[in-house]
Write a protein that binds this DNA or RNA. Structure first.
Length: 593
DNA sequence: GCCGTTTTCGGCCCGACTGTTTTCAGTCG
């Protein structure tokens, strides 16, 4: 069973408890939901942790859930779960994926209409609603019947489109909304919060906060956004709309004196906020998007407002926490001790080592679109100390060995020429991105490799090998003395493929021992190494390198996305290879310290 | 059912919004 399936199962248990008796089981419910959330964010497959008897190393999994999971892995089913689910019709669970459906509404409708087929329950309910049969039910009316139809139709649409936005797309949408909001004279300022501010790799909804003394006027303006497709809700503090392609935008308004609290609340993550609020409670304080409530000796409640986030965290005795690491993975405990790491920053990057030029190398994969000179000029404008050309290796199937040696020899001479031309402005490395073939060999000959400063090695084919074979393949590719960097280590591409599996403990150990770097690829469809694996790599002391993998000069600006990934993985300056100086890197490529 | 800077027992985030309701239940973030 995969983590996704297990998380779903635990959420179903929580839903069953809600239906049975929400009050009585409220703590079990949150426990199961929390465990499911943790599993969704876990770097390791639970099945593997089970084999190593390390299930309870995951926060949120205690003795009880651990034993249930052990039973699940051993026998394929869990007695306790079967008891909990006994009286709950299976058909309610698919409905929980439809917006507006919680366990109780789903249960009521499924029971009322005796819907028993989980495969068809959503379509069945849609038909029932369309016949106008729901409006008469107790607790339902015309409006809720119509809402059910709308939600189900949007659910069908969601099935056919990619459900999460990549960062540049989300940034652009947020920017458009902020610009639109600023047209209102009542808006003092506006910014994007939520997962966009935390720089999560893919974004679900856009969250915007606005500062104003006239919230109602701002919300009225917001819901008239020209790109609006449908109004979802429109209250006195918040509103939500759906824009084209089914993206949701939420707005929340606060007065200037309370804006810090709102920033904090709306940035999240949910898990961070819950933990922070629990921590505050232990100090006798209650947190919300409006500020901090405190009871005095005679029981009077006083609310303190905060105009900046720094003051909000300070009032709790915490250091300000960078948004990228607000995921409740230990940041609050360190902020209490004022011991947060100093995360890597864009300004610390001294060079980009993965750049594809248009040099006619007759590669196995796509050639870059910009000339070497254009790329150098761009790198200089970015104030880099050095850069590396890393085109794909010349195709092996199309060339004989001598042809490849000739192509690469010519390229080396050309790069040498550029080096001398630009020696006072920037230092240049001659690299290459080389395929790791399915058998683990590199795609070009040793004589060719000798012409390079070092090689970035990557998997570009046969993605479906099993974990063990793929690990062996990658380790063999990395073993070559010239191979110093593993490019886009998981091979994932958002909305296209999930990436292959590797035994990360083995990969990390190998890289650490043999001085190889793992790439954080900044291309927004990759963002690979993923942040949670960056965190593990950093913990193990593995060297990382942040590259753009640019195929055109404009893409060299995407370094910021790689930085976001590194920061989300708690990486510091000295974890990142390309914060080092030219001489240090040169030495590192040669295998020195 | 989980967890520990007050705790191995006794706590557990907080509020907005909608629809169907005359005061609240359900859902969402």
């Amino acid at each position: 069973m995969t983590n996704i399936e297990i998380a779903r199962l635990l959420r179903n248990i929580a839903a069953a408890y809600i239906i049975k008796n929400e009050k009585k089981f409220r703590f079990q419910i949150t426990a199961y939901q929390k465990a499911a959330d943790m599993i969704d964010h876990s770097v390791s497959e639970l099945q593997d942790l089970f084999k190593e008897n390390k299930l309870d190393t995951l926060p949120g999994i205690g003795a009880s859930i651990k034993s249930h999971l052990e039973e699940l892995f051993t026998h394929g089913k869990v007695r306790h779960f079967e008891e909990v689910l006994q009286d709950i019709p299976e058909a309610i669970f698919p409905l929980l994926d439809v917006h507006g459906f919680g366990p109780k509404k789903a249960y009521k409708l499924v029971s009322e209409y005796k819907l028993s087929n989980p495969e068809t329950v959503i379509a069945d309910l849609e038909k029932i609603a369309q016949k106008g049969k729901i409006a008469g039910l107790e607790g339902f009316g015309e409006k809720s019947e119509q809402d059910i139809i709308t939600s189900i139709q949007e659910y069908w649409l969601g099935k056919t489109k990619a459900s999460r936005m990549v960062l540049p797309y989300a940034n652009e949408l947020a920017k458009r909304m902020v610009e639109y909001l600023m047209k209102s004279k009542f808006v003092l300022s506006a910014c994007a919060l939520g997962s966009l501010r935390r720089k999560v790799a893919t974004i679900g909804d856009i969250d915007i906060a606005a500062v104003s003394n006239q919230p109602q006027a701002v919300l009225d303006h917001f819901v008239n956004f020209p790109g609006k497709e449908r109004l979802i809700e429109h209250g006195s503090m918040t509103a939500s709309i759906l824009v084209s392609s089914g993206r949701q935008i939420d707005l929340m308004v606060a007065s200037p004196e309370g804006f810090g609290s709102l920033l904090q609340h709306f940035t999240g993550s949910k898990a961070h906020n819950i933990h922070l609020r629990e921590y505050a409670l232990s100090k006798g304080l209650s947190l919300s998007e409006y500020g901090i409530k405190e009871k005095n000796e005679i029981g009077e409640v006083r609310m303190e407002k905060y105009d900046t986030e720094e003051k909000f965290y300070q009032a709790l005795g915490l250091s300000w926490i960078p948004p990228e690491i607000r995921e409740n993975t230990g940041e609050i405990e360190l902020a209490v001790k004022h011991d947060l790491p100093k995360l890597i920053e864009l300004s610390e990057i001294k060079g980009d080592l993965h750049l594809h030029s248009s040099y006619p190398i007759q590669p196995s994969h796509d050639l870059g679109k910009s000339s070497m000179q254009e790329i150098i000029e761009k790198a200089i404008s970015l104030k880099y100390e050095y850069m590396g050309f890393s085109e794909h290796n010349p195709s092996q199937s199309k060339h004989k060995l001598q042809q490849n040696i000739d192509i690469l020899g010519k390229r080396s001479k050309f790069i040498d020429l550029l080096k001398s031309q630009y020696k006072n402005c920037i230092q240049i490395f001659s690299l290459l991105e080389i395929d790791i073939l399915p058998n683990g060999n590199l795609a070009i000959d040793n004589q060719c490799l000798e012409l390079l400063d070092c090689a970035i090695v990557s998997v570009h084919s046969a993605f479906d090998l099993d974990k063990k074979t793929m690990t062996k393949r990658v380790l063999k590719g990395l073993s070559h003395p010239k191979a110093k960097i593993l490019g886009h280590p998981t091979g994932r591409l958002f909305n296209q493929r999930p990436g292959y599996e590797l035994d990360w403990d083995q990969i990390f150990d190998f890289c650490k021992t043999n001085k190889k770097a793992l790439e954080i690829n900044s291309w927004f469809l990759r963002l690979d190494l993923p942040d949670i694996l960056v965190r593990e790599a950093v913990k193990k002391g593995v060297t990382l390198v942040i590259n753009t993998d640019s195929h055109a000069v404009s893409q060299m600006d995407f370094m910021e996305y790689g930085i976001s990934v590194a920061r989300r993985g708690w990486a510091k300056n000295n974890d990142i290879l390309n914060t080092k100086t030219y001489n240090e890197i040169k030495e590192w490529f040669r295998g020195g310290e």
